[in-house]
Write a protein that binds this DNA or RNA. Structure first.
Lengths: 418, 418
DNA sequence: TTTAAATGTTAATTGGAGTGCCAAAAGAAA
DNA sequence: TTTCTTTTGGCACTCCAATTAACATTTAAA
C-alpha cells in the first residue's frame, strides 16, 4: 500500500482530531503496530493494529507506561541516549530479557526539547531505510498534535504549582480547602505523604527540568503528586504506591534519583532530603522545612550526604543547633577537648583528631588505626594519653556520648566560622 | 596550788574581759597548757603556758585551727562523739600518729548545743579525777564568755545571709556594691567561686545546722564564704584555697561532705551539686541555678547521684530537657525503640531493657550479660534480634548515640509521668 | 483436642579477631 | 648528653561471632 503515496506526498497532512486517529494512520502507512509515548514514556496513544506485538508493548499498554525495566535496559544499552540525540529514526535490535522485539523509534522534538517518541514494531515485516523520511514526517505531525495538548496542560499546571507553594508555605490551613483543590486537579489525596527536596549545584535550567520530569515520571517506587522548581532546588510532594510508607522507601527513592541523574544526564553532586512522613496535610509546611534542614545538615557534615536522607534519621544532628545555642549562652566548653587541643598545640600531636576518629569508628581500634594510618599500638598509646590528659574514661558511655556530641559541635562551629 | 581554792569555791567566777584572760586562769588552776576551741575546732584562745606542749597543739595554734587529720583521727576513735555526748570531762590517751599527747577535754555546751571545747594537756602532770568538777566549772565560765561573743556575731551573720540571698537571686547587679559588701563583712573577695547546694531528706533542723557548720569549718580543702539554709537545702558559696579551682576539688568536697555527714552524724541520702566555677560575681545566680539543676538530674537519674556533681560534668543531661521539648513539638518518636517496645509487648521479651543495659555498659557484652543475669550468648542473640527488629546497626556510633539519648529521654518521661 | 511444624529463645563450644601490656627503638625537648 | 615522649613489635589473653543442639512457645493442621 506504500505505493499509494508518492515520495513527495505527506500522508500525515491535515487535521487529526485525536492522537488516536493519527497513530492509526501511521500504523496503516508502515504496516506495523505503532505506539506514541510522551517524553516520560507515558503511553499517549497506540494503534489498533491487531497483529502480534511483543511483550514490552503489551505491558506498556496495560500499565499505560513503559515498564521501568524496559526503560532501564534501553538506557543501559545507550539506545535512549542515541534517540534523544538524533532527529533520525533509530533501529533497535530485540532485547529478549525484557521482551522487546525489533523496532524503529524516533524522537518527537520541538527545537531541542524532546516531547515524546514514536515506536514502530517490526513484528510483521522489516522496514527499509527508505521509510525513514516518512518517519520524520510522522514525527512532525505528532509534534503538532502534542503541542496543542501541552498548551492546555500547562495552564492547569501553573494553578497546581501555585497551590503547592501555598501548601509548602503553610498558607492553606483548612483541610476542606485542600480536599477541594485535590478534586479540582483530579488528584487522589494521598493517605501518607512526605516532602522531598533535591538541591543542585547550579540553578536548574529548562533542560534540567525536562530531565527531572523524565526521571520522576519513570520511577515507579513512588508517586510524585506535586513538583515545583525553585532556583537550585526541586521540591516535591511524594506519596507511596501502597498503603505503607517507610523512611526506607524515601531513602531508596532519593538515592536512585541522584545516581540516575548522574548516570543518565551526567549531573552530579545533587543532594536530597526528605521530611517526616505524615498524614495531616497541614504538616506539609513542616515536612518541607525538615527536608531543607536535612540538606543543611548534609552541607555541614558532608560525611552524611550519602547516608542520611530523612529527617527522622538525623538523630542527634536534629539537636545540634539547639545545643550550640545553649552552650554559647552558658559559655560552655568541653574541658577534656580543651585540654587535648592545648596539648596538641604545644606538642604538635594529634590527640584531638585521634579521639574524633576513634569515636567515629565506634571505638574500634583496628578501623580507627587504619583510617589514621598509624600502628595499632600507636593508637593504643595515644588513647591512654588522651584518657590521662583529657581526664576521660573511655569506658564510660556517658562521657563518650558527650564527647561525640561536643566533637560534632566543634565541627559545626568550624563550618560557621568559614 | 590547787589547794588555794577550796572545793566549794569557784575559781572562774567574776568577769573576765577577754577569753585570753580566762584561758590563762584555767591553765593556772590545772597547771596545764589549755586550749579553747569553738564547735568547729577553730582556735579561740590558748594559755600562755610556756611548758612543753605536743605537736597537735603547736599545729593548732599556728594554723589557728585543729588540723584536719587530728579531727579525723578523733572521730575515727569515737572520741569526739563521746565528748559531744557527755557533760563530763573525757580522758584522751595519746595518738602518736597525729602527734597528740594525753589530755582531757570537755565540751562547752548550752542546753544540747555544743559551743566549743576546752583541752587540757597532761604534759607536765596527770590530772586526777578529782579535778573533774572544776573542769565543769571552767566549761561554764567559758560558755558565758562565748555566748556574749556569739550574740555579737549573730547580728552580723544575718546581714551576711541577706546579702548572700541577694546574690543568689541576682538582686545585686553592680560589682561595686558587691565589693563594698565584702569589705563590710571583712571577707576577702575570692577570685574563683562556685555555688554548692546540698539537699537533705528532711527539713534541716537547728541541730543539723550545727553539724553542718561543724563539718564545713573543719574541711580545709575549700573555703566556704557564705552558707545559708533553705528548708531541705544548704546553699553555699565556695572558693578554693589556692589560685586554681577545678571541678575535681568540688567533687571531692561534695563527696566527703556526704560521707562525713553519714559517718559522723548518721545523716544519709544527702545529695549534692555544684554550679559552674566562675570569676564574675554576677554569675552567682546562674551557678546557683546550675547546682539546683544538678540535683534535679540526680533525682531523675539516681544512677548519677554518686558520679556527677558538677554542672559541667552533666554532659548530655544538660540538654535532655531541651531535646524533650523539641521532640514533643515535632511528635518525634524513635522508630527503633518503638518497634522494640511493641515486640516486647507481643512476645514478653526484654529487648528494650537489654539494649538499654548493653549501651549503658559501653557495648561491653560481658558486663551487660552479667548485669542482666543472662548467658553471654543469650545477649548475643538478643542483640542480633534487636538489630533486625529495630533496624539498628549497632556498629554505627551515630545510631548508638542517638539511641543512648533517646533511651535517657524515655526514662525522663517515665519519671515525669509519675 | 491432639499432633506436628514452625518459630522463638537459651546454652555449649569453637576459632579467630580484637585488646592490653611489656620492652625496645626512635624521636623530641631540656 | 640526659630525660621525656612517642612509635613499634611481640606475646598472652580476652572477647566476640558463628554454629549447633536443646528447649519453650505459638501456630496450623489433622
Amino acid at each position: 500500500m506504500m505505493d499509494l503515496y508518492s515520495k513527495n506526498d505527506n500522508p500525515f497532512k491535515g487535521n487529526f482530531k485525536t492522537l488516536e486517529s493519527l497513530v492509526d494512520r501511521i500504523s496503516e502507512v508502515f504496516h506495523c503496530p505503532v505506539t506514541i509515548e510522551d517524553a516520560n514514556h507515558r503511553l499517549l496513544a497506540y494503534s489498533q493494529h491487531n497483529e502480534e506485538s511483543d511483550q514490552a508493548r503489551i505491558q506498556t499498554i496495560i500499565g499505560r507506561r513503559v515498564p521501568e525495566k524496559v526503560i532501564n535496559s534501553l538506557w543501559k544499552n545507550h539506545i535512549l541516549a542515541k534517540i534523544n540525540r538524533t532527529d533520525e529514526p533509530v533501529r533497535i535490535a530485540q532485547i529478549k530479557e525484557v521482551g522487546l522485539g525489533d523496532r524503529i523509534a524516533i524522537a518527537i522534538r520541538k527545537n531541542n526539547e524532546v516531547l515524546g517518541y514514536i515506536w514502530a514494531l517490526e513484528v510483521e515485516r522489516k522496514l527499509s531505510d527508505q521509510s525513514f523520511p516518512l518517519f520524520k514526517q510522522a514525527a512532525q505531525a505528532v509534534k503538532n498534535q502534542l503541542l496543542q495538548l501541552q498548551g492546555q496542560q500547562k495552564e492547569a499546571d501553573e494553578g497546581v504549582n501555585e497551590f503547592f507553594w501555598k501548601l509548602l508555605t503553610g498558607n492553606v490551613r483548612s483541610k476542606k480547602e485542600i480536599r477541594e483543590k485535590f478534586v479540582e486537579f483530579q488528584l487522589l489525596p494521598p493517605v501518607f505523604f512526605s516532602v522531598v527536596v533535591f538541591q543542585f549545584q547550579e540553578v536548574i535550567s529548562k533542560e534540567n527540568q525536562q530531565q527531572i520530569f523524565y526521571l520522576l515520571s519513570t520511577t515507579q517506587q513512588l508517586k510524585v503528586i506535586f513538583r515545583v522548581f525553585d532556583e537550585k532546588e526541586v521540591i516535591m510532594l511524594t506519596a507511596p504506591n501502597e498503603d505503607k510508607y517507610t523512611e526506607n522507601d524515601l531513602k531508596t527513592f532519593i538515592r536512585e534519583f541522584i545516581t540516575r541523574m548522574s548516570n543518565r544526564f551526567s549531573i552530579n553532586s545533587i543532594t536530597g532530603g526528605s521530611g517526616t512522613i505524615s498524614q495531616d496535610y497541614t504538616d506539609i509546611e513542616r515536612s518541607y522545612q525538615e527536608a531543607l534542614f536535612v540538606l543543611q545538615c548534609q552541607k555541614k557534615f558532608p560525611d552524611l550526604t550519602a547516608q542520611l536522607f530523612n529527617y527522622r534519621e538525623l538523630g542527634i544532628y536534629r539537636y545540634l543547633d539547639l545545643i550550640l545555642e545553649k552552650n554559647r549562652l552558658e559559655h560552655y566548653e568541653n574541658h577534656s577537648l580543651k585540654k587535648l587541643k592545648q596539648y596538641d598545640l604545644k606538642h604538635h600531636s594529634q590527640l584531638f583528631h585521634t579521639l574524633e576518629t576513634y569515636l567515629n569508628f565506634d571505638s574500634n581500634m583496628n578501623e580507627a588505626a587504619k583510617a589514621l594510618h598509624i600502628h595499632l599500638n600507636t593508637l593504643s598509646y595515644r588513647l591512654k594519653r588522651i584518657a590521662e590528659i583529657g581526664e576521660i574514661n573511655l569506658r564510660d558511655p556517658h562521657q563518650k556520648v558527650t564527647l561525640f556530641i561536643d566533637l560534632k559541635l566543634e565541627r559545626l562551629q568550624e563550618k560557621e566560622h568559614l
